[in-house]
Design a protein around this nucleic acid. Sequence first.
DNA 1: GGTACTCAATCAAGTGATTGATTAACAGGA
DNA 2: TCCTGTTAATCAATCACTTGATTGAGTACC
Lengths: 193, 193
Amino acid sequence: MNSDATSAPASREERRDALVLAAYNQIAERGFEGLRTREVAAEAGVNIATLHYYFPTKEALIRGVVEHAMRRFRSTLAPHGTPEAQLRNHLRAVRRLLQDEPQLGAVMGELSLRSARDPAIAHIMQDTNEAWHRTLRGLLRRAAAGGHLKPELDSDAVAALVVAALTSMTLPTVSASPRTDQALRQLERWLGI
Amino acid sequence: MNSDATSAPASREERRDALVLAAYNQIAERGFEGLRTREVAAEAGVNIATLHYYFPTKEALIRGVVEHAMRRFRSTLAPHGTPEAQLRNHLRAVRRLLQDEPQLGAVMGELSLRSARDPAIAHIMQDTNEAWHRTLRGLLRRAAAGGHLKPELDSDAVAALVVAALTSMTLPTVSASPRTDQALRQLERWLGI
DNA sequence: GGTACTCAATCAAGTGATTGATTAACAGGA
DNA sequence: TCCTGTTAATCAATCACTTGATTGAGTACC
């Protein structure tokens, strides 16, 4: 049934991804409140019944969006640059990601709120936040070991504050404010990076 | 038409407040996605048509919730205690408010996300955040003037970071984490309060 | 008589999900 | 090579229900 990549129909995975991306964009723009399976299907260029062929329920589609968003976000957490620059690069990378891809911030925000009433989402997001926290602790410890940060720094608490500050940038009231970059610079100043 | 407070029907204001509170609770529990005018009316103990007598549209009801939430939140921003303790009291007060009234955090979070697509909400929340920022700058300056903080402190940037960190606590993924208090303590540590 | 408030019944539109029919591709046997 | 059966994917039509909003009638109070 699967033809080569140059002709319709697209592969199963491509079709699923198109539907997930359409739902992702709709959630970013109108929240879960405005998520409509008919419109998701239309944006992906298929019939509503086709959407249900790939995702039996609307909730199943939402789970696809959760995976997509977490994968996109976690891909940013990978450290890059010299060890002393990694911490600052991290802060800048997350900030830049949320600036360049405001949809990701919007979807992450929507998912965070929904996690209060959806244990599956809560679990995935908690895992992602744990991984993020670990990544940050590692960066902080390495920076302290290299003499770039005070050795008595409480990396656990600092990581928690960094996660909180960056997470707030998924909220439009924070990300839209020019003060957000001031907040980030203050964080860097206090870190001495 | 208005009878005394001991008998039905309640006054016009009481009835409106009951509807707003019912909607507020529903938004806190299920987000805008799960907000149903029929259920709001039922929780307030009136007919759907009565809800529409007081609020012509669902959007009008939502605006009532916005006002209620902003009023509740801003009432916490008022400084209390001695000048040197006011800053720490402020941080603790907001944290405690979001702990004691998680619905407020949930609704504030929902409203923040909705503000991206509702200019009226965006305006009100921006005003509230401006007021909050001013309050914090004032507390920071007074603390610095009293010798409790470093005089070279950038009160603008610190206030921005404080707003961001506290705002993140409206998100369940942050507020549900035991690390949130660590983040707050780290902030206090860096402030020296 | 006028006003404010109430509600049962209804409307019109929307929504997630299902069904049965159709089409295309593939594999295997003659 | 052709034919047949199977499988995967597609969609128009439909279902059953939900939802925001409206209407007309009734009641109480001034």
